[in-house]
Computed example of a mutant assay.
Amino acid sequence: MNIPFFLETLNQMFPDAKAELNYANPFELLIAVVLSAQTTDKAVNKVTEPLFIKYTNAESLAKANLSDVESIIKTIGLYHNKAKNIIALSQILVEKYQGEVPDKRDQLESLPGVGRKTTNVVISNAFGIPALAVDTHVARISVRLGLAKEGDTVLQIEQKLNRKIPKEHWLKVHHQMIFFGRYHCLAKNPKCVTCPLFDACKFKDKRK
Rank of each mutant, 00 (worst) to 15 (best):
I141N: 01
H174I: 00
N45Y: 10
I129Y: 07
K96S: 06
T118L: 13
V114Q: 06
A64H: 11
K204N: 08
Q38H: 05
A37D: 01
T40W: 04
S36C: 03
T118Q: 06
N85I: 15
W170S: 07
E70K: 14
A17L: 08
D106E: 12
K188N: 12
E158G: 00
L147F: 10
K172I: 08
M1C: 02
P50S: 11
K160M: 05
I157H: 01
K54G: 09
R163Q: 13
A19N: 12
Q12Y: 15
L108I: 09
A17W: 09
E95M: 03
K117A: 01
S110W: 07
S142Q: 03
R182W: 05
R182V: 02
A58C: 10
T153D: 00
T39G: 04
L89Y: 05
T119Q: 00
L186S: 01
V47P: 08
V101H: 03
L30K: 10
I157Q: 00
E158C: 00
E8M: 05
K117S: 01
V44G: 13
I129T: 13
D106Y: 13
N25V: 06
C195L: 05
A139Y: 13
L89S: 06
K160F: 03
N65V: 13
I73V: 13
E28G: 09
V101S: 07
N2W: 03
F180G: 05
E70G: 15
T119M: 00
V173P: 02
A131M: 02
N125L: 11
V101P: 03
E59K: 13
L78T: 12
N65R: 11
V101Y: 08
E8C: 02
G113D: 03
D41K: 02
K149F: 09
L29Q: 10
Q98G: 10
T9A: 01
A131I: 02
Y23P: 08
F198I: 06
E28Q: 14
H169D: 11
D199T: 09
V34E: 04
K149H: 15
N65Y: 07
T136N: 07
I123Y: 15
D68M: 05
D205Q: 10
Q98R: 09
W170I: 14
L61V: 06
G99S: 15
A19T: 15
I86N: 02
K46H: 13
A131W: 01
M177K: 01
Y55P: 10
C195F: 08
Q12I: 14
A88T: 07
S71F: 11
F127W: 06
N85L: 14
I141T: 01
N11H: 14
N85F: 14
M177R: 01
F27T: 15
K96T: 05
N125S: 14
N45F: 07
E168P: 07
H174K: 01
N125Y: 08
F127C: 05
S71G: 13
P102R: 07
F27L: 14
K188P: 05
I141K: 00
L61T: 04
K202S: 14
R140I: 00
L7F: 03
K160V: 02
R140A: 00
E100P: 00
F52H: 04
Q98L: 14
A139C: 10
T39Y: 08
A64G: 05
Q12K: 15
Q91V: 12
T40P: 04
T56E: 15
A133L: 04
